[in-house]
Amino acid sequence: MTTDASAGLRERKKAKTRAAIRDAAMRMFVEQGYAATTVEQIAEAAEVSPSTFFRYFPTKEDVVLTDDYDPLVVAAIRAQPPSTPVIEAVLLSMRQVFERLTEDEWASERRRQRLFREVPELQARQLQQTVAAIDLLAEVIAERLGVAAEDDEARSLAGALVGVALTFLKPGNTNGFQVEDFDRITRALISLRGHLEPLTRLSGDPAGQA
């Protein structure tokens, strides 16, 4: 029978291996360029086999595309008090996660963002990741709203939040995310609400009718 201790040890080993692969890849991307770096070279530098590499990252691109922030943001959203409005819960959680990053983590993030700016194929894949981010956020928003993950309201809120966030925190930003960026997102969402409110008249919503 698997104990909690052994399961925890196994997860820590997996996290260590994943970090070693990513660190080796990022170092080689900087030293010799993204295109010139192969999966075999990354695996050798991380002291793992190519098959082990592919267990953690399906492609070389995924080493850059995959980050540890989304699970942290989702966990932070779930930890917000139930009385906190859903959009406020999301923004507070995002801010909490990024404000807690260490200097080393910020340095790693800046390297990652530099690659987004310089490598066209990463930019293309990032668009696909945006859809995945909406799905993930819609799921946790739906939990707070008490509706199904595919609910239109949950997905609309997730899409609006991701869209506005990408406007100010777009891939390729090597300056890092500042507190001011989250303030801009908040102001943008308030402005967006003002522009959308007149649509209630078109929807037949009694609240929007004179």
Rank of each mutant, 00 (worst) to 15 (best):
T130R: 13
L157F: 14
V140T: 15
V131C: 01
A142V: 05
L122D: 01
Q126R: 07
R155F: 14
Q128I: 00
E153C: 06
A142M: 08
A154H: 12
I141H: 07
Q123R: 13
D152M: 10
R144Y: 12
E139I: 00
L127P: 00
D152T: 12
A148R: 15
Q123S: 02
E121N: 02
G146T: 10
Q129F: 05
A124I: 02
E139P: 03
I141P: 03
R155N: 12
Q129P: 00
A148E: 15
E139K: 14
Q129W: 04
Q129E: 04
L145F: 09
Q123T: 00
I141R: 04
D151R: 05
L145M: 15
D135V: 06
A142E: 08
A149L: 06
A124D: 04
V140G: 09
E121P: 00
A149W: 03
T130N: 04
D152E: 13
L137G: 02
E143C: 11
A138W: 11
Q123G: 13
E153H: 13
I141L: 13
L145Y: 10
R125F: 01
V131T: 08
E121A: 01
A133P: 01
Q129K: 09
A154L: 09
A133E: 06
T130Y: 04
A132N: 06
A124M: 01
L136A: 13
A158F: 14
S156C: 12
V131A: 09
I134V: 15
T130P: 01
D151W: 09
A142L: 06
R125T: 00
E150W: 12
L136S: 12
T130I: 04
A132R: 14
A133W: 05
E143H: 13
Q128M: 03
I141S: 03
Q123P: 00
G146H: 11
R144W: 09
L157V: 05
D151Q: 10
V131H: 07
A148T: 14
G146M: 08
V131F: 08
